[in-house]
Design a binder for these strands. Structure first.
Lengths: 142, 142
DNA sequence: TTAACTTGTTATTAACATAGTAACAGTAAA
DNA sequence: TTTACTGTTACTATGTTAATAACAAGTTAA
């Protein structure tokens, strides 16, 4: 798919768990909010648990944030979800016998790393709490 | 593809045209440096011409940069090549009747715009000339 | 003019990542 | 025991990109 929603859906899950913490944070309920299916949600939740952003108990509907929403950033979620964390990718198959083909990979890797750093810095400045607050404000002003 | 090489290949083309400007900038020659095929290269070149980064003449091997490499940035190439210019994408199919699903799209769009801006600022600071210089330095130190 | 080459474009196929779905073992609780 | 949930795996469907082929139109040289 051109438009990967994994990050957005993962943020959605975390947000839902916190905002509806007195409700029913089952994968079925969350899936109906994401308008996806429970299995997909569970797969993402599994990654979030492994990254220590969520806690859960097998067989029980007991999902909670593993730590306060103020301490979770968008970057945390990004790194938990995206197995390939690079936004830009070099072409790894260029002709090594050409001046350009033989060096451009290293050159672009450095450049792309800077772009990545800039994007990640931006992601690191957004907390889950800020996202939650914004959602609540938007909801209140409807 | 998970790893799109379009941007890298486009930079490769521009770099090749400039570095090998006294040589043969035909799509065949460039394709052998990119280790891709001439048709793919021509398609990318077509986009670069439309974006006023390259000039060419039908039927003639006469491809050149449309303007000095100092005035072309990675962002220019990115915007010329990537039809969808967003690096991150919101899930546009969330449940509007849920507090979270009904507001998270707007919330994330703002957040993602900031990330995009940070990435594009970084891309805008890299000129094609800087990339060319780096390639030449790397090549000289081999 | 012809022949060989190029660009620019379109169409088709192949490769592959992601979304969606189904299934099932294991756990918890009534 | 029955029900419901989690966590995981496998499979299918969908959609994007890479790769390839083909061809009209322009250029150059013989």
């Amino acid at each position: 798919m051109k438009y990967s929603h994994k990050l957005s859906d993962a943020v959605h899950i975390l947000t839902f768990v916190e905002i509806c913490k007195d409700g029913d944070p089952s994968s079925n309920t969350i899936a109906s909010s994401v308008e996806s299916n429970p299995s997909l949600v569970r797969r993402l939740m599994s990654l979030l648990v492994k990254a220590n952003l969520l806690t859960s108990q097998p067989g029980k509907v007991a999902t909670k944030l593993a730590r306060p929403a103020e301490t979770i950033t968008l970057l945390d979620v990004y790194q938990a979800i995206e197995d390939n964390q690079q936004l830009l990718h070099v072409d790894e198959k260029t002709n090594p016998r050409c001046i350009v083909g033989g060096n451009i990979q290293d050159t672009l890797n450095v450049v792309y790393d800077h772009v990545q750093q800039a994007a990640e810095n931006s992601m690191n400045q957004v907390t889950l709490q800020a996202i939650i607050d914004d959602i609540l404000v938007r909801n209140a002003s409807k």
